[in-house]
């Protein structure tokens, strides 16, 4: 009995989950949307995603002076998410600059994973939108061409469905649901995004309150104030949920663990806040879409939300102030 025994504090067993396994689950969840992007937008979409993911991983590895490219997987997730909110066929340098900004300005300058305040992929997106606006907004969106892998889709471009009522009305619910509409690379297919969301929910990595609060609020606002142009008020509510970045934002961006509240109530507030700001921008703002800024603003409010929503401890009584 002279073995070397480890003495440490309880508990002595740990979950097999790790940061890497969580990030891998997120990548798996994004697979349907990535596949859909390739089916709709062809090889250009695939290239965009590859450039973005590789740039993100390389920049992170260089910054941290690590040899392991994949490491905890978070850079790959950021890279893929950033690609998903780009137009399907942007110039390669824009992808590289944006992905690198996501990692450096969105994440590493704050101290790396866990310490960043804003969603890195959306920071990257905000930077390219502000720097090269004409390549990110306006009628620059290629038309989806299902199963035409080798076609260069950048030839024909148009505005997104959020640009105006006429554009919105040119697509059916089926178009919106499957994703055969112009839009960002990974945001168009509600079906693919929901599939991935179901996986994340099943693995316990997202709480329903964020996407629920977000999507619910968008729907409600669309129903009440959308003007009922798309098949009545109800239809207009649904339109606002399916068009643009609400789905990808609600399921993947607003659920980013690091930049959103940890309290249960806080998550609901966060989701509702995102939905509210998105709709304020869409309905009364100067831009057609507001998901990116809605989430970034709520990211900034997260510490405050957390602090005000700390739950009562078991058997505790509220102190009357």
């Amino acid at each position: 009995m002279d073995k070397k025994l480890v003495v440490s504090s309880s508990p002595h067993i740990r979950t097999i989950d790790s940061v890497q396994s969580v990030m891998t689950d997120v990548l798996i969840a994004l697979f349907p949307a990535a596949l859909m992007a390739v089916l709709l937008f062809g090889y250009k979409a695939l290239l965009t995603m590859l450039i973005s993911v590789v740039t993100a991983m390389v920049v992170e590895a260089l910054w941290l002076r690590k040899r392991d490219l994949f490491s905890d997987g978070s850079a790959a997730v950021t890279g893929l998410l950033f690609a998903m909110v780009l137009p399907p066929a942007p110039p390669w340098w824009l992808v590289v600059i944006g992905a690198a900004s996501s990692i450096i300005i969105g994440k590493q300058v704050y101290g790396g994973i866990g310490y960043n305040i804003f969603n890195p992929a959306l920071v990257g997106r905000a930077i390219v939108v502000m720097s090269w606006g004409t390549r990110m907004v306006g009628p620059i969106w290629p038309q989806p061409q299902p199963f035409a892998f080798t076609t260069d889709i950048s030839a024909v471009t148009m505005a997104t469905a959020l640009a105006g009522q006429q554009e919105a009305l040119s697509y059916s619910y089926a178009n919106y649901f499957i994703g055969t509409i112009p839009g960002c690379l990974g945001e168009t297919s509600a079906l693919a995004l929901l599939l991935g969301g179901a996986w994340l929910y099943y693995k316990g990595h997202i709480d329903w309150r964020i996407p629920g609060g977000f999507i619910g609020t968008v729907f409600l606002f669309g129903l009440l104030f959308g003007g009922g142009f798309y098949g009545g008020s109800f239809g207009t509510g649904l339109f606002h949920v399916l068009a643009g970045g609400v789905m990808i934002g609600a399921i993947y961006m607003a659920t980013d663990m690091v930049t959103t509240p940890v309290t249960t109530t806080g998550k609901l507030i966060f989701g509702i806040g995102c939905g509210l700001i998105t709709m304020l921008i869409r309905l009364w703002g100067s831009m057609p879409e507001g998901v990116t800024f809605a989430i970034l603003i709520m990211n900034g409010l997260t510490p405050i939300i957390d602090n005000f929503t700390i739950p009562q401890q078991f058997g505790g009584v509220k102190k009357s102030a």
Partner: peptide, 10 residues
């Protein structure tokens, strides 16, 4: 690793 604020502990 750093806390990723996943709320699993919560």
């Amino acid at each position: 690793a750093p806390c990723i604020r996943c709320a699993k502990c919560v």
